[in-house]
Write a protein that binds this DNA or RNA. Sequence first.
DNA 1: TCAGTGACTGACC
DNA 2: GGGTCAGCCACTG
Length: 114
Amino acid sequence: MSPENKNFFQKVYEVAKQIPYGRVTSYGAIAKYLGAARSARMVGWAMNGAGSMPEIPAHRVVNKIGLLTGKHHFDGTNLMQQLLENEGIKVVDNQIQDFDKHFWDPFTELKSRL
DNA sequence: TCAGTGACTGACC
DNA sequence: GGGTCAGCCACTG
């Protein structure tokens, strides 16, 4: 099957799964990469389902300012932050420090794979 | 079936 | 520089 035939959610999952260790990306970046820049909310919704998939590092997906808006959906209260810190990413007040340095752009990293 | 909600973003004032 | 508005689409009651 061609990637284009896959569901939007499935595409989101594939991109999310390719986020390397110690890196993060944004909902909008994934949405834009999938050709649905205005459907960033759907990416977030997809992450809701990704929460049941251990292979998908949903904790590496945050909003465009590096804010852990989805941490509330993780088990416990600061699991998302703990996971990020475990990867060497500093998180203060639910916000990633040096977000631009840890940012992982699907276009930059995946465009050469297409 | 209809209307409200949501892990967002960009544009506008 | 900061608050507000509209758009996007799937899911729930």
